[in-house]
Design a protein around this nucleic acid. Structure first.
Lengths: 162, 162
DNA sequence: GTTGAAAGTGTTATATTATATCAATTAGTG
DNA sequence: CACTAATTGATATAATATAACACTTTCAAC
C-alpha cells in the first residue's frame, strides 16, 4: 500500500484532521479518567500515532515511531500499548491486515465493521449492529452464544474507483 | 485449544464423518475436472487432512501431517496447497485464528461466515449472503465496491455452554 | 513422440507478526 | 512510609508467512 490520501479516510470523506485527532485524544482522556484507566505516555502517544495515520498501522510500524520518540524499541512496547487501546475500545485490530486503527466511534458501545480499500489502504469504520444481522440470527437459532463479531470487507473505495 | 469433539462440528450437529470426507473429496475431484484444475497429490491430501479435522488447522499443523506422509517438509508446501484450496473455494482461511478449514458448502457460490467456539475450537460455517447485510448496504451508499467480506463470530458453541 | 512453455514441487533463506519471562520502575493504597 | 499491583523495557524465542531458486511434471503444439 502506497501513501494514503488523507482525503480518502474516515468514511472516505474529507475532514479537519488535526482537530479530529485532538478531539479523539481528549475524549480518550475523559474516558480513562471516568474508568480509572491509566492513560500513560506510551499509550497516549500510541493512540496519537494511530489517529494521525487514520489508517491501519502494523505493530512494528507503530513501534518504530514510538522508538523514534524515545519510548522503548522492543515489540512488547507496541503490543502492550495496542492491547490497552483495543481492550478499552480506543482502537481496533483489523484481522485481515494484522494491523490496527484508531476507533472512529470511541465511547459508544459498538460492533465495529470495516471497509478496507485494497488500493490506497484507507479504512472506514462503520457502525453496524452485529446482533441484528443474519449471522447473529443463525447463531441464536443454533444455540451459539456470540461474544464478539469480526466484520471486514475488502474492496475499492470511492476515491480509487475508475 | 484442546482436542475437538467431532460431535461438535459441522454446524455443531452430529454427522457421519468418514462419509462426509469422502463425499467432499469426490466433489472436489469433480469440480477440478470441470474447471481443468490440477488436483495433485499434495492438494488432495491437504484437503483430506482439513476435512478429517473439520476444524481449523494452522498451516504448520497441516505441514507436519503432510511431511509425515512423505510430502515436502517446508512451509511453502503447506502454504501453496492452502492457497490452491482457498483460491478455488475448497477451503477457507479463518482470519481470527490464522488457520484454515475445509469448506462446508463447496461448489456453491457463497460468502462464508463462521462461528468459532473459543472453548473447544469447533468451527461452523454458515451460508450468509454478505451482499444483503447492513455492511454491504453502507458500502453501496458510500460508493465502496466490496470484493470480499470476512465475517467471523467468536463465542461458545451449544456443546460448551453451561 | 518430441519439444517448449507453464505449472507444480521441494528447498534454502528470510521476513513478518507475536508472546513469555524477568528485572526495574512507577502509581495508588493503607 | 511501606506494600502491592500495574507498567515499562529488555532478552529471547515462537508462530506465521513469503521470496527465490533448481528440478520435475504436465500439457499443448507441432
Amino acid at each position: 500500500m502506497a501513501d494514503v490520501n488523507p482525503q480518502a479516510l474516515l468514511g472516505f470523506a474529507s475532514h479537519n484532521h488535526s482537530a479530529c485527532v485532538a478531539e479523539a485524544l481528549a475524549q480518550a482522556e475523559r474516558v480513562c479518567q471516568e474508568h480509572r484507566l491509566r492513560f500513560t505516555d506510551v499509550r497516549r502517544r500510541a493512540l496519537g500515532i494511530l489517529l494521525e495515520n487514520h489508517s491501519a498501522l502494523g505493530a512494528y510500524e507503530l513501534l518504530e515511531r514510538l522508538d523514534n520518540e524515545g519510548f522503548g524499541s522492543k515489540p512488547p512496547v507496541a503490543y502492550r500499548a495496542l492491547a490497552f487501546l483495543v481492550k478499552n475500545g480506543f482502537a481496533h485490530r483489523i484481522e485481515k491486515l494484522n494491523a490496527y486503527v484508531a476507533c472512529a466511534h470511541p465511547g459508544a458501545q459498538h460492533d465495529p465493521a470495516f471497509l478496507i480499500c485494497n488500493d490506497c489502504g484507507a479504512i472506514a469504520e462503520t457502525p453496524v449492529s452485529a446482533s441484528a444481522g443474519r449471522l447473529a440470527q443463525t447463531a441464536r437459532q443454533s444455540g451459539f452464544q456470540i461474544s464478539r463479531t469480526i466484520m471486514e470487507a475488502e474492496g475499492q473505495c470511492p476515491q480509487c474507483r475508475p
